[in-house]
Amino acid sequence: MALVSEVTELFESAKSGERRSLSRLLSLIEEGAESPVEFGSASSLGITGPPGVGKSTLIGRMIDVWVERGESVAVLAVDPSSPRSGGALLGDRMRMSNADSSDLVFVRSLATRNHPGGLMDCLTPMVDVLAACGWQNILIETVGAGQSEIRVVAFADRILLVDGPDRGDIIQAEKAGIMELADLIAINKADLPDAQRAANSVISALLVGSDENTPDVLLVSAHSGEGVAEMIDALAETSTTPDRERLRVRERLISAWDSALLTSSGFDDTLAALEAGSITLREAVAQIKNGN
């Protein structure tokens, strides 16, 4: 575990603009070091959506717009770790190739590292540190493919859901429960036919729900850049709703709970007893709740 003095020293240096210190500090926090910044003091934008929908490319375009406006951008790009080897292949930044030449851009690839319960509670302190070091726009990117990814993106304060026209239907996103979390929805690949139809189907899906504050649905093209600046302006004006805020906090709580369960001392014994058939599932839950 990192020394407090090391963290403080790196933080001071990172605040003065030293990238290496910032980068090292983020690693220490990822490994569990105490953050030097007040917890939850900054806000972030989560960007999620199904695989292949163009999230990274779109972020690359968003970066261009912000940089042109003189604003800084930091991206935390999260990809899964291999459950077997524990390794990870992190390739998001190859789609943001303009990102590596401007001082206004910082991109860090993060592996999920198979934390129990999918809990990535390092994200909040990382966002806090980035904001304290002056980064204006802070993004968390994750693939919205399943429950564990929802848990990751739930650590952001607002969520942009990206979808595309070539995926057939929006049912996948609905199934995964991401739609309910989204504060803004972008249909990417607007340069392809059927984008408007996809947008319409998303809008009608939203209208079926009981939520009165349905998110706006915008068409963008990460390929041509069309609609990206407008989307950024819309994002600035988009706020979350208490309902969605609650859903995100709920996801965070559930992943923290799962993490506590999976790392609890009696878990393995209870599991073994359950496997041997000596207790029932209900008794197992009671046992874990009682902490023995």
């Binding site: 291999s82 390794g87 390739g91 190859m94 590596d100 690839s109």
Partner: peptide, 21 residues
């Protein structure tokens, strides 16, 4: 990149045509 991942490492792949800087 794939082999290193399977060996338990976290690999960041940059994509093609990068400058030394």
């Amino acid at each position: 990149a794939r082999a290193l991942r399977d060996g338990g490492h976290e690999v960041i792949y940059t994509g093609l045509r990068r400058t030394p800087a």
